[in-house]
Simulated assay, not measured.
Amino acid sequence: MPEQRLYFLLQRAAHELRVDADRRCLAAAGLTTAQLGALFAVRETPGLTQRDLARTLGQRESGITAMVQRLTGAGLLARDRHPDQHRAVVLTLTDEGAAALERIRPEMDRFNAELHALLGDGFDDTVAALAKLAGFRTPAPRDDGP
């Protein structure tokens, strides 16, 4: 029954793709896919806070704090005080961060082309299905009481 293996296959595919993508990204720009995702999110959403970044990436704030420290230490992100929120900081992509994204683009294009070739005509359907799964949430059980 293939449907019983769906979760296992998704986990296995995600792992294999992440390992390969991390290898490529590290070689091209010294970044992991998680760090790359953070840089893209900051570039695409000006004024993004660390809390917003954690929500966007589906990560805990503590993990994002450590990642942001590494990325600011590497000169790829800048942290500035939020104009309205006392304790919040705004993240900004630096020129070095933008250059890293440009360095990685050819490898990302190759990776996506290889996936497109592998999936053929099913590529767009796979992207659509994964987008649905990425937003999947099991409804909370109802408590109708006694």
Rank of each mutant, 00 (worst) to 15 (best):
G75E: 11
L17Q: 04
A13C: 07
P106N: 04
P106D: 10
L39T: 02
R60S: 14
A54W: 08
F123A: 10
R142E: 14
T65W: 05
K132E: 13
A29S: 14
E114Y: 02
F8V: 01
G73I: 09
T32G: 10
L76D: 07
H86R: 14
E61M: 11
A117C: 02
Q35F: 03
L10I: 12
Q85V: 15
P141V: 10
R18A: 09
V68C: 02
D80P: 00
L39V: 06
A14D: 11
F40A: 01
A134C: 09
Q69P: 00
Q50N: 05
D121H: 03
R55Q: 15
R79F: 00
L57T: 08
Q35N: 03
E102L: 12
L71F: 05
A54V: 07
A74K: 14
T126E: 02
A74R: 15
A74N: 11
A34E: 07
N112C: 12
K132A: 13
A74V: 01
R51E: 15
R43W: 05
V42A: 06
R23Y: 03
L130A: 12
P106G: 02
L91Y: 07
T32P: 01
V68Y: 06
L101S: 03
G63E: 08
A66T: 03
A54H: 05
L101K: 02
A78D: 14
Q11H: 06
G120E: 04
F40R: 12
G73K: 07
M1K: 09
G145V: 03
D84E: 15
L10T: 08
F8H: 06
D80I: 03
T72Q: 05
T126N: 01
G122F: 07
T32I: 02
V42G: 01
L9F: 12
A29W: 08
A13R: 12
T56Q: 15
G47Q: 09
L119R: 00
A28D: 06
G122R: 12
L71R: 06
R55M: 11
E102G: 10
E102A: 14
L130F: 10
T45Q: 15
G135A: 15
P146R: 12
A13W: 11
F40T: 03
A13P: 00
A134P: 00
R51W: 04
L39Q: 04
V89I: 01
A117T: 01
P2G: 03
P46A: 13
R24T: 00
M108P: 00
E107D: 13
H82Y: 08
Q4M: 09
